[in-house]
Design a protein around this nucleic acid. Structure first.
Length: 264
DNA sequence: ATGGTTGGTAGCCAA
C-alpha cells in the first residue's frame, strides 16, 4: 500500500500538478493540506475520475483545509476543531486494506507566525495546538493500535531536519520549545517516524523550501516539516520512503514536496 | 540587519 501526503498550497490552483503526481506515483491513499477552498468548490470529480472514489475533506475560504482521497474504502470520518477555533486542520478516517484496518489522521499544525515569542498569538496557537494533540492522543488514543499520522506538522525536530541547526534555533519551526512539545507529541502513543526509519539522523533531509530563495535547489536551505508517523505495530510493515524533491521544481510548485511511505 | 515569494482575497493577511 502506498500512502502520500502533500501540502498542496491551493488544490484548485494545482489540480493539474496533483493529477500528474497521482498518475506518476499511483498512491492508494493521499492526504492534502492547505487546500484553501470551501467544500462546495473542491474539485472532487477530477480526483474521482483519477480513481479515488472514497474521500472526505473539510475546508474553508482562503486558508487551511485538509483532505483524504483513497482507492481503498474509507469509514468513520471525523473532523476536529482545535483550540476553540473553526480552523480545518485535522481530519481522520479509517482505511480498510486487504489485511487490516487502520486509523489515518491528516493534520495541519499552524505555522506559528514570525516571532517565536510566547506573547505572540500565532506562536501561542501553534504551541497550544501541539499540546492539545498530545493530550488528545494520550487520553483518547493511547490504547489504540494501527494508527498513522500524516501532515504538515510545521516543525523540523532534528538537527539535520534543517539546513543549519544553529542558525535556525530562533526561527519558528525549529525553536527548542517547539521541538520539546513536538517530541512530547511524538512520545504520546509511541509513534515511529516512518521517514527517519529509513534515513539516518546524520543525513540532511528536507520536505520544504521557501519561495523566497533565489535558487531554492542550489541554496538548499530546506526544512523537514512534513511527516508520516505510524504506531509500533505497523513498524514491521514499513517498506520504503520517498520525498519527491523534483515536484518542488515543477512549474508553479507548492513550497512543500510530497512525501510517500510504502507499506508491505 | 534586512528583504526576499506566493496564494487568496480585496484593498492586506497567512504562510
Amino acid at each position: 500500500m502506498r500512502l502520500l501526503t502533500w501540502n498542496i498550497n491551493s488544490v484548485r490552483l494545482r489540480l493539474d500538478l496533483l493529477t500528474q503526481l497521482l498518475e506518476a506515483q499511483k498512491p492508494d491513499v493521499f492526504c492534502l493540506q492547505e487546500t484553501k477552498t470551501p467544500d462546495e468548490f473542491f474539485p472532487v470529480e477530477a480526483l474521482v475520475a483519477a480513481g479515488y472514489k472514497h474521500h472526505h475533506f473539510t475546508g474553508m475560504k482562503g486558508y487551511n483545509g485538509v483532505a483524504v482521497f483513497s482507492k481503498l474504502p474509507l469509514s468513520d470520518p471525523q473532523i476536529y476543531r482545535r483550540c476553540g477555533k473553526n480552523d480545518c486542520r485535522h481530519i481522520s478516517v479509517k482505511v480498510a486494506t486487504k489485511d487490516k484496518t487502520f486509523e489515518l489522521h491528516n493534520i495541519y499544525i499552524p505555522a506559528g507566525g514570525y516571532e517565536p515569542d510566547l506573547n505572540s498569538d500565532k506562536f501561542r496557537h501553534k504551541l497550544d495546538f501541539v499540546d492539545e494533540l498530545t493530550r488528545w492522543f494520550t487520553q483518547e488514543r493511547s490504547a489504540k493500535s494501527s494508527m498513522v499520522v500524516v501532515g504538515d506538522l510545521n516543525i523540523a525536530p532534528l538537527d539535520n531536519d534543517v539546513w543549519d541547526h544553529k542558525k535556525m534555533l530562533n526561527v519558528v519551526s525549529h525553536t527548542p520549545i517547539e521541538v520539546e512539545k513536538f517530541t512530547k507529541f511524538y512520545r504520546s502513543v509511541g509513534w515511529v517516524d516512518g521517514i527517519r526509519h529509513f534515513v539516518p539522523e546524520e543525513e540532511k533531509l528536507y520536505s520544504w523550501w521557501s519561495y523566497r530563495a533565489e535558487d531554492w535547489n542550489g541554496a538548499d536551505k530546506g526544512r523537514r516539516l512534513d511527516h508520516i508517523w505510524v504506531t509500533k505495530d505497523l513498524k514491521p510493515a514499513l517498506k520504503n520512503q520517498q520525498i519527491l524533491r523534483a515536484v518542488r521544481g515543477w512549474q508553479r510548485p507548492s513550497d512543500h514536496a510530497p512525501v510517500i511511505l510504502d507499506f508491505k
